[in-house]
């Protein structure tokens, strides 16, 4: 490891990689909803769009009913949700959805709760065959001081 390296390689390689990684992050954020706050793009403190601004909604129809119920995503999926916040791609959202479909649910007050998360409620656990899973983002308008929600992805 003692051969001299070309001067330009020593001077510019690290910086060249910096530029390439930042350019990739710029593209991911503009085209694929990735937050500018991470990923080596140096876009932190430039936008409200941090990973905290992403949130999820899940809905389902219970068997033999035409009514749509809100599905409460159990707390044990917090790390999966966090993963999708950082990697907001359809495949990653699909993996979260597939995990939710393996759970069993009970109905409570026009909501559906995972029966394993709340065992104090009596009710027959059931399997849901379909869940509509949505990823939303909140944004802020300085003119009106309003925070508003936007739908980003839907399965």
């Amino acid at each position: 490891m003692n051969q001299p390296l070309p001067n330009k390689l020593v001077k510019y390689l690290a910086s060249a990689i910096l530029i390439v990684v930042a350019a990739i992050q710029f593209y991911l954020s503009k085209e694929l909803h990735v937050s500018p706050w991470k990923g080596g793009g140096f876009g932190m403190f430039s936008t409200v769009n941090s990973t905290n601004s992403y949130f999820f909604r899940a809905y389902s129809f219970i068997p033999d009913s035409s009514e749509k119920f809100w599905v409460i995503i159990p707390a044990k999926y917090l790390s999966e949700e966090d993963h999708v916040r950082h990697y907001p791609f359809k495949n990653d959202l699909q993996e979260l959805r597939s995990s939710l479909l393996k759970e069993k649910w009970v109905i409570l007050n026009r909501e559906i709760i995972n029966s394993e998360a709340d065992i104090s409620h009596s009710g027959t656990p059931m399997v849901i065959t379909d869940i509509d899973l949505e990823m939303w983002q909140y944004k802020f308008d300085a003119q009106t001081s309003r925070v508003y929600s936007c739908l980003l992805l839907k399965l």
Binding site: I19, F42, T47, V48
Partner: peptide, 24 residues
């Protein structure tokens, strides 16, 4: 480079120059 890139992000951000980010 890191400061230039950070500057460019703010220039092209939809919610920086209008004050939204810091007000938020």
């Amino acid at each position: 480079l890191s400061f230039s890139i950070a500057f460019i992000w703010k220039l092209f951000s939809e919610d920086y120059l209008n004050g939204s980010f810091f007000l938020w």
